[in-house]
Structure formats: C-alpha cells, structure tokens
Design a protein around this nucleic acid. Structure first.
Lengths: 364, 364
DNA sequence: CTTTAGCACTCGATACCTTTGAGTGCTAAG
DNA sequence: CTTAGCACTCAAAGGTATCGAGTGCTAAAG
C-alpha cells in the first residue's frame, strides 16, 4: 500500500528533524517547518496514522515520535533528498586522498581517518582478498657472502620480499639453480598446495642452497595465507562519544568493544553479494552488540582480486543522506585512483557518484 | 625529610586501597587491613599529617583521602611491592608473542592488543626509527616485456620493493646498466641527498631505461623519509570506558580524542633519553588533554636503529605495580625475540624482568 | 469530508527538600 | 602516645511537588 503524499512528507520531516535533534519529534515542531501548511492537529492525525502503520514509534505517551526501523527504511529508500557535496567538500576529500601513498594498508588507515573526519563518525575501512592467490615468480638476489633476498611476485602482481641468511657460502650459480627450481615447481599453486612431498621434491633438486627451501616455503605459505585475509582499520572511535545516544557509557562501551573484538569480521561476508552502498539498520545487525546502531558500508574495487570497503558506524539516527553521499564519493574517488596505479589522478569536478547502484537497505 | 615507617605504611595502604576501589579511602578502611595494628583514630592522625605534607588530598571535608601526585610518586619510587607475574601470566604472554609474525607493524599492532589485554587498559605501541637511513643497494628484476621490480636494500637491512611498468621494451642489459648506475651514484645518501642535479646526472648515464629514474628517486625519497617516521598503534580504547573515572563521557572523549590526534606523537621525544620504564603522572603530561591520566611506557630495543616502545594509558589511579611488571616482561620478551630474528624463540620460565632499569617517574 | 481550535490528560524531566551515613577533627581519658 | 567518644560536615540517595511538551479526543468551522 502506498502512502499518501502528505504522509510521506510528514514522515520525511519527522526523520529529518530527528536526525538533527536526536530527540522525539512533536507535532508542533513539524508544523512549524517552513513548507508545512497544516496545523499541528492535522499533523497529529497523520502522525497517529503513521504510528499505526508502523513507521513511527512513541517512547511514551506524552513524548513525540521517533522513526521505527521500517520508517528509516522507507526514508532511505525513497524519501531522503540526495545530498550533493559542496565544492569545498569534494575539494577537501580529493586533496586528502591525493597524496599518493605506497602501502595499501597504510593508505586504508588514512582513508578511514578521512572518512571519519568527513562524517564525524567512527569509520571502518576493510580490504579483503579472495583466496586463491598464488606465487607467480620467485627471484633470489645475493647480498654479500651469506645474505639472500627472496622476492616473490604474486598472482595479484603484488611483490613481497624477505631477507634471509644462508649459513654456508652460496655462489650466484647456486641461487640461479634454486630459483629456476622454485619457478618450475612452486608457481601457480595456492597455500594448500605446499605439501611436505613438494618440499622434499624441491629440496632434493635444489643443490647447494637447498637449506633455504623450508624458509622459503614457510614464508610463501604464510604470505599466501595472509592474502586470503581481511584487513581492517578503524578510526575516530572517540567521535562516537560526542553523540547524545552514546552519552550512556555502557552503550558506548558495547559498541567500541565490538570494534576490538572481531564482531565486525563478518562484514565482508555480509557485503559479499552487494554492490554500492548498503545500509544496515538497527538490531540483528552484523554484530548483536549494535542495537540502536547502524552501519553504512560502500564497496569499491581495488583490482587484482582485492576488494575494498569503507563505511561508518553510528546511531540509527545518523544523517543517511550526508553519509551515503560522502561514502559514495570517497568510494568512487578511490576506485579511480586504484585503476590508474602509477599516476594517481584526481577525479574531476563531478560532485556526486552517479555510476553507483542505489543504496539498498536491510533491516531487522 | 624522611617519613616514619608508620607513615609510609599508611601511605602505601591508602594508595593500594585507592587503586583497588577508585574511591576516597577513609581511616576505618585502612585500620581494618590485616596487618594494621592501630585504631582508626591513630590512622586519622597519620593521615592528617600526610595531608599536611602534601602526599594525600581531601576531595571535601567529610570524604576520605586520595593520593596526590607527590603521593603517587613516592609510591611508585619506593613503596610499591614488585608484582611478580604468575606462571600462567607469563605463559599466556609468551604464547601470545610466540606466533612469529612477518611484518613489524602488524606485529606491533598485535602487541598493542596483547598489552591491552594483559593490563585491561588502552595500550600503545610505537616504533620509531632514527633518521639517517640510506639505500645500500638497488636491484632491478625484469618481469615480462614491460614489468620491472625494483628492490632496495636499506642501511637498516630492511628490504622494500616496488613494481613498475616501463612504457618501452627494455632488455636485461639495459636494466643491468641502470642498476649499476644507481648503485654507483645513489647509495649511502639520505633522503635530502636526492637533489635534482643528482637526478639529472643519473638519468644522463642511465641509457635506455632512464625514464625509470624519476620514479625510482621518488620512491626512494619517500621510503627514506618514511624511515625517520614513527609508527604507532593503539588498542583497547574501549577499556577506558570500563573505568569509573571515565564514566564521565566528556573526560573519556578528551582522552580518546587525543589518541586520534597526534597529541601522543611526542612520546618518542619524551622517552628519548630514558631507559626502562617511565611513568608519567598526571597533569602537564605528554598531552595536556590527559589530566587525571597517566601514561606508563617501556622502551625496548629492536635493533637496526629501530626503537620500540609499549605502554598503557590509564587513570592516575592505575595499578602501577601490575602494569609496570607486565610491561617490563613484555618488553623483555620482545627484545629477546628481536635479537634472534630468524628463529624467534621464547624467553624461558624466568618470570620477572630483572635486567631492566628501575622505573623512573616524572610528575607535574 | 477535511481541517482546526480547544482542552483535559499523561508522564518524563527538573528542581527542591530531607534523610542518611561515611568520614572527619577534636577532646579527654587510658 | 594511643584510643574511645562525640559533634560536625557534606556528598549521595531518595522522595515529593511542579512543570511543560506532547497527546488524543471532541466539536466547531471550512
């Protein structure tokens, strides 16, 4: 059943006001809004109806109304105005992302900080990698009589290295042999492929530098295993305490504690089949600790099988329009940067992420 | 002037009780302690004297006493019992540090988490590197027609790499030439040494792969600059909210916010000339935000010009004995691990870090 | 039929007051 | 020097009255 235009307008007003004030909204406040042409009594009737329909709730008889989860859903899906970013906002976001950073995890830490700043809420950034990474290529570089650097190039084109010491002298030829063996036998297989049989086989044909093989296999296994891993950074936790709903220390503590625990580690799973921005409202959320708390997450593509996500955690009352707008913009900027890896380039003036899917919302 | 034995005993009792209960300590509570053989009236007199001397304070007339900053100092310096770790405690610390981890920063993140767990307080881990790092050696590895991996070995023996793309085909010989030039001209100099004259000089003699030089110089500069940098991880922020003194959200927020800002970035400077454990008590602390808050930090050596620190942040009332004991033990274990880089090995059963300097304290 | 003004009612929030009790300092006796 | 006793202080806790925002309902007006 479709709501009347007027009901929608009232509902939107209530949500907007509640987002701004964090306090139950009364009929008077609504009817005093600039473009509301009805008296408080009429509004009262509409609000009573909306309460009946389950879009609003009443904390107690003589208080105003607050939006229910269903009310938020309707708001996010249909009613909220899309919040265009001002020029200054896009500028400050861009210049923040601009400094090219070298290491992905450092960068994502920084991004979390920026998102937190932009939204005034705690922010999360996640990178997760599909498993199935393999080593594409091994190189060994000799440094001094017993020093050897192992350089591995992964199937994701990421390059990792490790410095090793060799107890006996090894010639350049020994190392060339070893790397040839490694490249022949140990490329294109995942972490689970490094069996002890393989290890033995490689060692037997590896010549003088064979004692390096276990170290290499260890390192490779560990590296590949880590590749399937998710990596998460959180910033701006303190901002939570600035919000009226978390003046109650116990509530705040529950939420903050859930950051430290791995309550959020199933976020990637939840987002797996989603695209664009997803709003998780209220109870039965990713983590049970987060009643009254919503999570807004946006996925973006890093390339190379890497999956990036940024998001914020805040009260269900948060300003969804602003938050989703900023997240989308961040995500889009980041996507652009990652797709031109060598010369990070700013996305230009276009202020809103038009290419993204509309936000979807999940509730209950 | 030296305090009488009895005064010391009373002072110790007051601090101990206050640490346990977080509430002003009355004469009755003190005289009910097992080995206190005087009546509450006597204790009252002693406490009045200690207040006179500035070691105790009275929040208001009819409340008990709490230790002043001076009181804490005396306590930490002379009075506190050294808290020996139980076997389980050492075991759990060891097994936690045990999993060898590859990347230093990841490891320090993990360590912060562990310290936080062990002390039930927010924990900080810092690694800082003296500047003055240089590149010791360059290697170029060709991967496919246009792919090149740059591997740099730093004077700290750390190895970093970067994947680059070359717009034109380059032969193995071109790369050999380039790396020879790099090794000849660009080793042993710091970030400030990479001038544009040097860049030009190197480019002119670099042959076919010369266009890589600016990218390499950029990367090297950035890397070296980062080397002088401090790196910090914080864990367990939520634990702060569990403490009675931070039920006041505003206080808690101030402290937590100071984590996000760089208020703590001068910690390394403060610790520069200190060894062992340092206790920073109360106001005029590292960060002004941290009134009522103390920081306990322990330095340890990572080697290779790297400096490690772990510490906790908590109320001035924190259990110094326990905290310093655990920090020392952690620090010692970490030192041992870092000094046997290839096969991390557990420190064995010796429960307390006897080799460390006695804790020093700074106040005001 | 819709809108609006009026009004009695509800109930959390606030302010004010009282009570309670832990803790003190002082005095005087042991 | 130590201790029991006692009057005094003052924050914390609890109880009561008041206030007012907001409601639902009714009846009149459009």
């Amino acid at each position: 059943m479709e709501l009347s235009e007027r009901k929608k307008k009232v509902l939107r007003s209530v949500v907007d006001l509640y987002i701004r004030t964090a306090e139950p909204v009364g009929s008077k406040a609504v009817c005093e809004l600039p473009d509301m042409k009805f008296s408080s009594a009429t509004i009262r009737n509409e609000m009573a109806a909306l309460t009946e329909l389950g879009y609003l709730e009443q904390p107690h008889t003589s208080a105003g109304r607050i939006p229910s989860a269903a009310g938020y859903r309707l708001y996010v899906d249909e009613l909220m105005a899309d919040h265009r970013l001002s020029l200054e906002e896009t500028k400050s976001i861009n210049s923040a992302i601009e400094d090219k950073m070298q290491r992905l995890d450092r960068m994502m830490e920084k991004v979390a900080k920026l998102v937190s700043q932009a939204t005034d809420l705690p922010a999360i950034s996640v990178t997760s990698r599909q498993s199935g990474t393999t080593v594409k290529r091994y190189d060994l570089i000799q440094t001094g009589p017993t020093g050897v650097i192992l350089v591995m190039m992964l199937s994701t084109d990421e390059v990792v290295n490790k410095l090793m010491r060799l107890p006996v002298d090894a010639t350049d030829t020994d190392l060339k042999l070893l790397s040839a063996v490694l490249n022949a036998a140990m490329t294109g297989i995942g972490a689970e492929g490094f069996t002890s049989e393989l290890l033995e086989k490689v060692m037997s044909s590896a010549g003088a530098a064979a004692m390096l093989v276990p170290v290499i296999v260890d390192f490779a296994t560990e590296t590949l295993r880590r590749q399937g891993h998710t990596d998460m950074a959180i910033a701006g936790q303190a901002r939570l305490l600035g919000l009226p709903e978390y003046r109650d220390v116990d509530k705040a503590q529950k939420v903050l504690t859930s950051f430290d625990s791995d309550a959020l580690s199933n976020l990637p799973a939840v987002m797996q089949n989603e695209n664009g921005t997803k709003v998780l409202v209220g109870p039965e959320n990713v983590a049970q600790e987060l009643k009254d708390t919503s999570v807004v997450m946006t996925k973006f593509d890093i390339g190379d099988g890497l999956q990036g996500m940024i998001g914020v955690v805040g009260p269900t009352r948060m300003d969804y329009a602003k938050v989703t707008a900023r997240l989308s913009y961040f995500a889009e900027s980041l996507s652009k940067i990652f797709n031109k890896p060598e010369q990070p380039q700013l996305p230009d003036g276009d202020p809103v992420g038009e290419g993204l899917d509309p936000p979807s919302i999940q509730e209950n």
